[in-house]
Design a protein around this nucleic acid. Structure first.
Length: 556
RNA sequence: GGGCUUGUGGCUUAGCUUGGACAUAGCGCCGGGCUUCUAACCCGGAUGUCGGGGGUUCAAAUCCCCCCAGGCCCGCCA
């Protein structure tokens, strides 16, 4: 809706001004869309901007494209303002009441999206799930935008960390505690092993040996690595399911050793003019602005992470049209090196979304030292708090229903709290905010949706009526009309937090409407058009919430 | 030391890519609203040198330069 109207206005502006790409801005309270093109034209024509705007607006008003859309043009000083008419509003509502509103036409582009990919040496913590939630929300937006998408988790199953875990299981007391979750068990052994390693650095040699054995394919060692990594992934699966995060495929790093892909890509790297073979195998990437050389192979002949990651990305490039990775900001340098190397090899490079770190008030999180808040603990605590809240608000409901609502509310609180912040901001984890279910939260948006559901349920049968009248009705409809353009923007800019902002603003607008415009108590056409509008907002909120990976519950 | 990045009312945060109309909203604070469609809500009020300083421009939170502060990175770890 908004997208089409914007394109039409831009087209007309281009015809009239001759300027190729006239930017339209949100008009705020002045208009639905606005342009400041008069400033630039004024300079060219050596006239006053106000005068130029006036003349331009008069000319624009005669254009049939705008008249057909019902767009009115006016000026306020040098600003040219466009306001959409009733046709725009009623068309928006007609579209918005239909299931699947906001979906974009099918797109044949095959996209692979990698996210989370945490090392399997301990449970997912609140830093890791920032990755999961950004990635999963983006994945949902891509699906909604019609793309063919596969979501992958890259399992780093042969890193040093895993060797340390395996060493711990071989050499330390590592019996699993009663009821201990697998990933928590792995972390406990990993932390203990690191303590030993600190006391006795000679253990490093045993770790190196394990790494050589696993890369060489020693069956007993490979089996041990696989066993512990699998157990950790079983733990992750529970956490990810609770967070409503979905991966289509888990891709194991070691597979790229076993199937020969790593060897082959190293062969190709050796032929590059930038290669440096001096004990290690490395690349000179000064061409891309990197001073440090990029090491691919150790002097003992084993590959480093970068080599396997190159093999993985070459495989993705061969099977998909677009590659998107969600990675922590600590991967910025190696991400750049990876892209540079893939380009040198003539391969498609990934688009990487980096997000900044989540730390604790007392400092950075660290699996190695056991300083972290696990995602499981977060889920448990937020769910407990949600249960209390539901019990206070809805004592008449049975326990099963209350628990079910609390679970959805907790998920909403966690996912929304994380996705609403721009990825480039580093954050400090805060229990008070995590446990807040009020404004600017997921539950707030769920509540607006449940409220709309409640009205519709009490309304009974009505006939759709798309002609709106009052200021509040029209404001709400215009907000609803922005949804498809928001999905489009999320995927073109790879910024899922825009959807979080949108959904919250839609809930705000609806709540204001709710308090000023009675629906069920109004009569005749007014009642019908308001019910139609409530249906449209309910559906748009539902589609928004689902794209955010949050349950659009009907009562709470 | 070098690179990347962030800095917006007491706290959290949008806007910055694409410069324009009084800088967005929440928490907290002050005042008001539940016999009325779900108050996880709404309405009103106070609170800002948009880190600091230069520059570009008719116009800068937004672009450029310098400085300050925080985060991340600079490994034959991943």
């Amino acid at each position: 809706m908004l997208h089409e109207a914007t394109t039409t206005i831009q087209g007309v502006l281009k015809d009239v001004t001759g300027i190729e790409d006239v930017q339209l801005t949100d008009g705020g309270e002045h208009a639905d869309l606005a342009t400041t093109v008069a400033f630039a034209l004024a300079k060219e024509k050596k006239q006053e901007p106000v005068q130029v705007a006036k003349e331009l607006a008069a000319l624009l008003a005669t254009k049939p494209e705008l008249q057909n859309l019902g767009v009115t043009v006016e000026t306020k000083g040098p600003y040219i303002n466009f306001r959409f008419g009733s046709a725009y509003v009623s068309e928006a509502i007609q579209a918005a009441v239909k299931p699947g509103y906001g979906s974009l036409p099918k797109n044949p582009t095959r996209v692979v999206l990698e996210h989370t990919s945490a090392n399997p040496n301990g449970p997912l913590h609140v830093g890791h799930i920032r990755n999961s939630i950004i990635g999963d929300t983006l994945a949902r937006a891509f699906r909604k935008a019609g793309f063919r998408l596969e979501v992958q988790y890259y399992v780093n199953d042969m890193g040093r960390q895993i060797a340390i875990v395996v060493w711990g299981f071989d050499n330390l007391d590592s019996t699993r505690h009663e009821g201990e979750k697998e990933d928590a068990h792995i972390a406990r052994v990993y932390i203990a092993a690191n303590r030993e390693l600190e006391k006795d650095p000679a253990i490093t040699r045993q770790i190196d040996n394990l790494m050589q054995l696993v890369e060489g394919g020693d069956p007993a060692t490979v089996k041990k690595f696989r066993k512990e990594v699998s157990r950790c992934l079983d733990g992750f699966a529970v956490t990810l399911k609770n967070l409503n995060v979905i991966h289509e495929r888990f891709v194991w790093e070691s597979d790229f050793i076993r199937n020969g892909d790593t060897r082959r890509i190293i062969g190709r790297i050796k032929k590059l003019p930038q290669v440096k073979e001096e004990g290690t195998l490395a690349l000179d990437l000064t061409k891309c602005g990197f001073e440090k050389e990029y090491v691919i192979m150790r002097s003992d002949g084993t590959s480093v992470y970068g080599a396997r990651d190159l093999a993985y990305h070459a495989w993705k490039a061969a099977n998909f049209d677009r590659i998107i990775d969600v990675l922590g900001a600590d991967h910025k340098l190696i991400g750049g090196q990876l892209i540079c190397t893939l380009r040198l090899l003539g391969e498609k490079a990934p688009e990487i979304i980096h997000f900044e770190f989540v730390s604790l008030p007392e400092g950075s999180m660290s699996t190695r030292t056991g300083k972290f808040v696990s995602a499981d603990d977060l889920i448990t605590e937020v769910t407990r708090r949600a249960c209390e809240e539901v019990t206070i608000r809805r004592p008449e409901l049975d326990e099963t229903t209350r628990r079910s609502i609390a679970k959805s509310v907790a998920l909403a609180a966690i996912r929304y709290d994380i996705v609403k912040v721009s990825p480039e901001k580093s954050t400090v984890f805060n229990w008070k905010e995590a446990l807040d279910f009020e404004r600017q939260s997921g539950p707030y948006i769920q509540y607006a949706h449940a409220r709309a559901c409640s009205i519709l349920e009490k309304a009974g049968a009505y006939t759709d009526w798309y002609e709106l009248e009052t200021e509040q009705e029209i404001a709400l409809a215009k907000q609803i009309a922005k949804f498809p353009a928001t999905i489009e923007k999320v995927i073109s800019e790879l910024r899922p937090h825009l959807l979080a902002t949108y959904a919250r603003e839609l809930a705000d607008t609806f709540n204001t409407f709710y308090h000023f415009e009675p629906v069920l108590k109004s009569q005749g056409k007014v009642r019908e058009r308001r019910l139609t509008l409530v249906k449209a907002v309910q559906n748009t909120l539902q589609e928004s919430l689902e794209t955010l990976g949050i349950d659009a519950i009907r009562t709470m």
